[in-house]
Amino acid sequence: MASYIIRRILIGIPTILALVVFSYLLIVVAPGSPFAGERPLPPDVLANIEARYGLDRPLAEQIASYVWRIVMDFDFGPSFAYQDRTVTDIVLQGFPVTLTYGFLAFLVSVLVGVTLGIVAAIRKNTWLDYLAVGISIGAQALPNFVMAPILVLVFTLWLGVLPGGGWQGGQLPYLVMPVIALSTSFMASIARITRSSMLEVLNADFILTARAMGLGFGRIIFSHALKPAMLPVVSYLGPTFVGMITGSVVIDMYFSTGGIGQFFVNAAINRDYPLIMGITILTGCLTVTFNLVVDVLYAWIDPRIRY
């Protein structure tokens, strides 16, 4: 197992490097200049700006010096669009925010989703099943960009119990709505995957055998059925977790959290090359890491899996 993990980490390094080169090429190829505006800049002014950010050099040299600065100084460069900040400043400010609400939303969606899924599966075709499925379909039908304004309307304007936006260092009242809005649709997906996978497992031979041997219902579910039923859920959770902690543009936009999701989208719109690259590298590293975590979890859940 240890050698497998080391091998995966070693493969991760060229993966990230390829991601850097490919992303850099893509954004440079995209039409539109980072410094274009309603008023095109006079050539002299533009030349000064491009010289300052090293954009006047050949492309290969730009990429090489970009990677070099990261490796040697861990310097991700200045942001083009937010001139008072470096990419590191922006990530250090925004990532803890999305990590906080993303992680909480992840917990909520896993706990509620898995519970709903199990309940629906073991009480198949009863009112409990219909209720659980109903809730999950309802949640799926309410994407976060619909949820968010509804929540603000109800809890801020009508009831006046929660602030309509902001973060304030992650105080509880500011957390509630972002977490609910982000978790609902993921919760729904997890519930549906859990339900179908649980149903499949409950019909498996080893469960029937366990029943025939007179094992208690709770023991069958929690000791024998739950672990194998979780396999498809876990493979869904790896990339979902990364997606949630790197933020959602909708949550950041509606709740003004200052999170990194919105910076990412704006960076693409603004052609803020260093910021796009910085957040892409962050997301890339997290994806590589959590895919590895999921694979290790697999082996733990199903001892038959060997690497």
């Binding site: 304004p149 603000v152 309509g164 936006g165 902001g166 200052g258």
Partner: peptide, 13 residues
């Protein structure tokens, strides 16, 4: 100064 991207949400607030 509070950043609120969505104009309708800003009106609600």
């Amino acid at each position: 100064g509070k950043v609120v991207n969505d104009e309708n949400l800003a009106l609600t607030r």
